[in-house]
């Protein structure tokens, strides 16, 4: 195994492009090192990106948008009051990952690029319309995070490509986001269903919405029917029921040790309602702390 710690993304990309066999980037390492120790994946090339300048920074841009370094751990997101105020859903989703110890290392980028359908932060990132800068042998491109994971353990990144920054749009007025997951225990578990909602209000009426589901299909889902079910409503019971039905209808889950098709489909609808209510309340200016369960 060869270990590299390049000083720039261009160099990281070059090393990856030239490497043969299995390549892994080392962000927090909470997936990479666990897989290595469990004899699941032993990379031939390990490229540590944490030494690249700027990877640990959280930046609020002049237009109100945010740029996140690819090595920022969950704990730092959670301690950033400005970010928490703007995007509590994205932050609470990342903060659900693992334990205090894991939070000190684990990153949004790693969660995204590990390609797990159950990754907690990914539905929240998708609902928030986040994008990533991808650096490759031919330079940089910007891509919606939704299009990065393509299936369990797979991404759309080509050989030599890596994520060099994450971007969150400006929050704007009267808007809120939220994420909830279902796990049988209270923490240290993997999502059986995850759901994120991001919405904007005009008065009491929802005028924009994005609803995203995790762990119910091979990739994260952006459910347009579910968003449509609440746009134009005041999130009344009828709208919530339509939301739940649309969320359940979008599920393409599997039966496995973590949950049944029936259960995941049902609970996706239940969570969608609960998450929408939190996002709505936040859009109204209520402070609702992140849930750890």
């Amino acid at each position: 195994m060869n270990y590299h710690s390049p000083a720039s993304f261009a160099e990281a990309s070059r090393i990856a492009a030239d490497a043969s066999g299995i390549t892994r980037f080392l962000a927090g390492g909470t997936d990479v090192l666990v897989q290595l120790r469990a004899d699941i994946v032993t990379p031939d090339t390990l490229i540590d990106i944490k030494k690249i300048p700027g990877t640990g920074e959280i930046t609020r841009n002049a237009d109100g948008s945010w740029t996140l370094g690819v090595a920022v751990p969950g704990a730092e997101l959670g301690e950033h009051t400005g970010l928490v105020a703007d995007w509590p859903g994205v932050v609470e989703a990342m903060n659900l990952v693992g334990s205090t110890q894991v939070q000190g290392r684990a990153t949004l980028t790693g969660n995204l690029c590990n390609g797990s359908p159950a990754a907690d932060s990914v539905p929240a990132m998708v609902a928030a319309s986040m994008t990533a800068t991808v650096t490759g042998p031919d330079g940089n491109r910007i891509v919606a995070v939704q299009y990065i994971p393509t299936g369990p353990g797979k991404t759309s990144l080509a050989k030599g490509e890596l994520v060099s920054a994450l971007h969150i749009p400006a929050r704007g007025e009267n808007a809120g986001d939220a994420y909830l997951r279902f796990i049988p225990r209270s923490e240290m578990d993997i999502a059986v269903v995850g759901c994120a909602v991001n919405l904007r209000l005009d008065g009491d009426t929802v005028v924009e919405a994005r609803v995203s589901l995790g762990a119910v299909a091979p990739t994260v889902l952006l459910v347009e029917d579910a968003a449509a079910a609440i746009i134009g409503s005041t999130l009344d019971d009828a709208a919530l029921d339509r939301l739940a039905s649309a969320a359940s209808a979008a599920c393409k889950p599997i039966n496995d040790k973590r949950g049944t098709i029936e259960f995941r489909t049902e609970v996706a609808g239940v969570l969608a309602k609960r998450v929408a209510r939190i996002a709505y309340a936040r859009a109204k200016g209520e402070i609702i702390k992140g849930h750890h369960g």
Binding site: R185, S186, R258
Partner: peptide, 10 residues
Amino acid sequence: LDYRIPVASD
């Protein structure tokens, strides 16, 4: 991860 023993907060 998948053999779900209770954690302290359970």
